[in-house]
Amino acid sequence: MRRLRGIVCALALFPVPAVRGDLSAQAIAMNCLNCHASGQAAVSRLPELGRISTAELEQALLAFKYDRRNATLMPRLAKAYSDAELAAVAAYLGRH
């Protein structure tokens, strides 16, 4: 839980990301938090992003996108992004 609060707080520490890709990853990643993180969330079946490494996140997102992994919602969302965007989001979330 503290780790998730960390994600939210850490978003603030990069007001001027060095490259546009980072900015874009941050903008996408903030939408992950609607479901996957909060300061108040109780026990949840949804994976806590803060506990997953960058490599695992990237692997999962790509597996959802290419229908190698089943889920009710994520395959529908992951298909909206390029592989590079998913990698950048995974890197962003894994870093914070």
């Binding site: 938090l33 609607n34 479901c35 993180a37 300061g39 108040q40 949804l46 009710t72 919602l73």
Partner: peptide, 20 residues
Amino acid sequence: RAEAEYAQIVYRNLVADSFA
């Protein structure tokens, strides 16, 4: 059943992400 459960989890998370 899973989506019914997610509906309730996501509602709570959405409220927390917006207000808390």
